[in-house]
Design a binder for these strands. Sequence first.
DNA 1: AATTTCACCGATAGTACTATCGGCGAAAAA
DNA 2: TTTTTCGCCGATAGTACTATCGGTGAAATT
Lengths: 251, 251
Amino acid sequence: MTSTPLTRSEAKDLTRRRLMRAAFAILDEEGEAGLTTVKVARAAGIAQSSFYVHFKDRQELLRALGDRVGERLRGAMREARRRAREAPSDRERHRETFRIPLEAICRHPALFRLGLRARHDPSSPFHEFAVESAAAYRAHLVADLASFGFPAGRESDRRRLEMVADGIGALSDAMAIGHIDGRYPDLEEVVDVLVAFSYGYLRLLRKDPPASPAGPSLPPDPVRNGPRTPPIDPTIGIRDEPGGGARRDGA
Amino acid sequence: MTSTPLTRSEAKDLTRRRLMRAAFAILDEEGEAGLTTVKVARAAGIAQSSFYVHFKDRQELLRALGDRVGERLRGAMREARRRAREAPSDRERHRETFRIPLEAICRHPALFRLGLRARHDPSSPFHEFAVESAAAYRAHLVADLASFGFPAGRESDRRRLEMVADGIGALSDAMAIGHIDGRYPDLEEVVDVLVAFSYGYLRLLRKDPPASPAGPSLPPDPVRNGPRTPPIDPTIGIRDEPGGGARRDGA
DNA sequence: AATTTCACCGATAGTACTATCGGCGAAAAA
DNA sequence: TTTTTCGCCGATAGTACTATCGGTGAAATT
């Protein structure tokens, strides 16, 4: 434990890293509500006021965290494309499609949880970022599916692809959470399940365009363009007085 | 607009409902962080201090909200079982399996969003509740699948069923969000997609037990009980000094 | 009619957090 | 060596929220 002689900028950089690291830990354990300058500074071992030596304000810390997340995300995407290209066989390439995002997630579980939380929390500073990332991932998958020859011409085709991509994303997320939580320790088994689910949607996409020649044991194609479900009532089932609604004026 | 003569308890009850209603609205729009007595009271049209006429403290409001959510959830589960029993055909019963939870979700979108958020947010007062609810839903699905004759004897079988149930839940959630957001306006089409995914896992579950006689065009069963993936490194990729870690002591 | 109850009000004490300020001492520059 | 820089410190002003308290008037009770 001989004291390391650090230059001033090295020391500062180190402290900043400690702050970021502490921030991520707090974000993961307590959520965004627990992320205060007091806690971050204490966890990083400096005075609360010294926080402002490194960040203009709390918001800038959040932005820095977001930037870092984005960086890693883009890197993961790049790697995914590269590795998918290099897969030895069609079957293995198909598995890689699921394995690569899973591995990326598992390498940064705190980040992943953060993103998942932010996606459903409009008050999070990462909300828009998370929503956009999810949309980008969907678009990426849709493009892949279309390039594999699945129909994407009509608007209904595109929507169908969107839904499938959405589903794949949700499945991957759920399996990743299960793996991170230790419920599904074997990642290959997780990939098995994702591949299995994929046979379902592959079948759907293949049989879709003519919308009629269904396989023998398959149920016939259900009515599409049927009655649209009615708009959703956003009330919670808590009734108010007739003609009511919350008053707006105070006092 | 003739003024309604209300008894005292009626008026109080009404105000309480307004508070709950306002709380749900804020929760949905701003997340739990925005749920302050100030905002809830103002939205309900009473003074902030009057909040405490109706709730002992902020925590009790949260508990009341949670209770209400639980109530509705149990009700939805009960109805689901009833309706599933009454489905006319096997095929329709299968569709009902997906349609019923979706409809329940769409009837209370704010509630659903809240639950989804809470599930990923350990700082939420609804966190444990949401996690337990999700687990209960999985268990319910696992039981259903097992009762349909899918293998559940060995531990690996149970885990496989768990994973599938987990996946179904995630798919339903994602599709429900898409429907609520207006991206997938036709609920029957959503059910179509869920049914399609289901063919994938049904196939997986059917061919699983012997773990070898795979169908003709199916990839062979991958190695199971293979190398467990290594434990996950919870650091974010932010390196610290060697032997480092955040200091704990302040000052 | 007289009295009691109580839903609501305004004021305010207490708490937790954000952000700023002046000072200190060691590293860096002269 | 002398001077300057700057990362860190403690103190503190300002802000937003929680929860309590005494007062008020109309509904409820007598």
